[in-house]
Computed example of a mutant assay.
Amino acid sequence: MASRASETILRRQLREISRNGIPGISAGLVDDNIYNWEVMLIGPDDTLYEGGFFKARLTFPEDYPLMPPKMRFETPMWHPNVYPDGNVCISILHPPGEDKYGYEDAGERWLPVHSVETILLSVIAMLSSPNPDSPANMDAAKELRENYPSFKKRVRKLARDSAEML
């Protein structure tokens, strides 16, 4: 029964995104599977990622919205809050409840009121404001902190390369 409810919620959220749109973002199903979405994000204006086209996957559990989806960039990404394998590490994608390490407040983590729209807006915010103090990619965080010109050059190249791959 939970999967039926999650399917209904996901179909509604996909319809809302398709109808209303989120600037710089498009989303659709992979192989007509409501639990597997392909997302294209355009790098936000006035950021190092500006002009880039970043493809990602959102994979939803059958107990969504009680549990969060996973998001993984398929386009190469250099960002302190994105693991080297492309998995996104932001608070709202972490399971609900208290953080066993005490870093995040329960209110910062996944809540069933979140939607695909709030996830995607959070990812855009993450691209705009990297958090090197809570890194998923230690090398990117270190480069951002210690050699910003090198970090900037690498990210700008990724953004250019991503636009050429289209």
Rank of each mutant, 00 (worst) to 15 (best):
Met138Glu: 06
Ser91Ala: 13
Pro68Glu: 13
Ala56Trp: 01
Tyr83Gln: 03
Leu14Gly: 11
Ala141Ile: 12
Tyr83Asn: 02
Phe54Trp: 09
Asp99Ser: 04
Ala163Asn: 07
Ser150Trp: 06
Gly51Pro: 00
Leu41Arg: 04
Met1Pro: 02
Ser115Gly: 15
Ile42Trp: 08
Asp99Ile: 05
Asp133Lys: 08
Glu38Thr: 12
Leu120Pro: 02
Arg156Met: 10
Glu164Phe: 12
Ser122Glu: 09
Ala27Ile: 12
Ala141Cys: 11
Arg4Gln: 06
Arg57Ser: 05
Phe60Ala: 09
Arg11Ile: 00
Arg15Glu: 09
Glu62Cys: 02
Val39Gly: 00
Val82Arg: 00
Ser128Asn: 09
Leu41Tyr: 05
Ile25Met: 03
Leu29Met: 15
Leu29Phe: 14
Ala136Asp: 01
His114Thr: 13
Ser162Met: 05
Ala163Thr: 07
Val116Phe: 03
Glu74Thr: 04
Gly107Glu: 10
Pro132Cys: 07
Pro95Lys: 07
Ala140Asn: 04
Gly107Cys: 04
His94Thr: 01
Leu93His: 03
Asp139Asn: 11
Val123Arg: 01
Pro23Asn: 15
Met138Pro: 00
Ala141Met: 13
Phe53Ser: 07
Ile42Lys: 05
Val82Cys: 02
Pro44Lys: 14
Phe73Arg: 02
Met165Thr: 10
Asn87Arg: 10
Leu66Lys: 13
Phe151Cys: 02
Glu74Pro: 00
Glu146Ala: 13
Val30Arg: 06
Glu38Ile: 09
Tyr103Asp: 05
Glu7Ile: 08
Pro80Ser: 10
Asp161Trp: 08
Glu143Gln: 10
Gly28Leu: 12
Glu62Ile: 08
Asn20His: 09
Val113Cys: 13
Arg12Pro: 04
Asp133Met: 08
Gln13Val: 13
Pro95His: 06
Lys55Thr: 15
Ser18Asp: 07
Thr118Trp: 03
Leu10Phe: 10
Lys142Trp: 15
Asp85Phe: 01
Tyr49Lys: 04
Ala159Thr: 06
Phe60Tyr: 07
Val113Asp: 11
Lys70Ile: 07
Lys152Trp: 06
Glu143Lys: 09
Tyr49Pro: 01
